[in-house]
Amino acid sequence: MFEFARYDAAKRLKGSVYLAVGMSLLAAFAVWAYPSYSRAMDMAQLREAFPEPMIQAFNIQTMASLEGFLAVELYMFGWVILLGLYFAYSAASIIADDIDRGRMDTLLSMPVSRPRIALERFAALGVPILTVNIVTAVVVLVSADLIGEPLSVVDVVALHLLSIPYLFACAGVGLLASVFFDRASIAQRVALGVTFGLYLVESLLTGTDYVRLGAIAPMRYFEPNEVLLDGTYDLVGAAILLGMIATLIAVSQLWFIRRDI
């Protein structure tokens, strides 16, 4: 059991380390840069220097504290956008790449079901998702202590835990694209476009008459500002993301069963 998950997880180990190192460097730089910014300018007024569309797109609430600064510079940009797009792109090759390279026929000749292949390979994404969250959380907490601006351990840990279903939901978009398209390159581009489009729908329609359209976007249910600034955890949003993941997996499995290879 779980042979596909173990095999894919092992293949993703090296990439997971690189990803964790990259995001940790981004986190350390953001923490290190904050004292320089706070000494050089009035951080309470820095928010007003941004154009209104950017304030709305990145949901900039305040940059007058390390928590607010990280919410924008690290989590809204690094987690919500960069990692969301990365995992959508990565998941888009789960099925499509083997079809594209002609390996899927050989794989399906074994006594294994299509839903199992899709599910186990999707589950293997837990390796990079968990690795990047664990390593970066430690780096953020240690770096904040080193500059004399300690953060709430509970809030930082909660934020990274809540990001896990968000990143899996973005990956679910990629999985769906992966079973719809035969070519991995097309599936990856579609996954990137749809994920970024959902981000724009959620961020730019907030406060308009069309705000309800954002309910389909995973970004609505993961809000770094609420965790770091207010210490509130959206468990309902996390439950919705879990439901979204289950739905995306189920639809992907059903389509994979019905389609010709």
Rank of each mutant, 00 (worst) to 15 (best):
A217Y: 00
V211T: 15
L235Q: 01
V211Y: 13
Y233M: 09
P218I: 08
P224M: 03
G214Q: 03
L235M: 11
A215L: 15
L213P: 05
L241P: 05
I240Y: 04
L241S: 02
D230N: 14
R220P: 03
E223G: 01
D230F: 11
D230G: 01
L213A: 11
G231H: 06
V236R: 10
V211K: 14
M219E: 09
L241D: 03
V227D: 02
Y210L: 15
L229S: 09
V227T: 08
I240K: 10
E226N: 09
E223S: 03
Y221I: 05
F222Y: 11
L235K: 03
N225E: 08
L229G: 01
V211H: 12
I240C: 02
A217N: 04
I240N: 00
L213I: 09
D230A: 13
P218H: 02
Y210H: 11
G231I: 04
A217C: 01
A215V: 12
T232L: 12
V236E: 13
D230I: 09
D230S: 14
G214C: 08
A215R: 13
L229W: 09
R212Y: 14
I240G: 01
G237P: 02
R220N: 04
N225S: 11
L228E: 07
G214V: 10
E223P: 00
G231C: 06
L235I: 14
D230R: 12
N225G: 12
L228M: 11
D230E: 14
G237H: 04
A239D: 04
A238V: 04
V236H: 10
Y221K: 05
D230T: 08
E223L: 05
V211F: 14
Y233D: 02
A239I: 10
E226T: 09
D230L: 12
Y221T: 02
L229V: 09
P224Q: 10
A239Y: 07
G237V: 04
E223A: 10
D234G: 03
I216T: 03
L228K: 04
E226S: 13
Y233F: 13
M219V: 10
A217D: 03
L229M: 12
L235T: 13
V236Q: 07
A215H: 07
Y210T: 04
E223R: 08
D234K: 06
L229P: 08
Y210R: 05
E223T: 06
V211E: 14
E223D: 15
I216R: 05
G237Q: 03
M219Q: 12
R212T: 15
A239L: 13
E223Y: 07
Y233N: 02
N225V: 08
L213N: 05
G237E: 09
Y221G: 01
D230H: 15
L213V: 10
R212K: 13
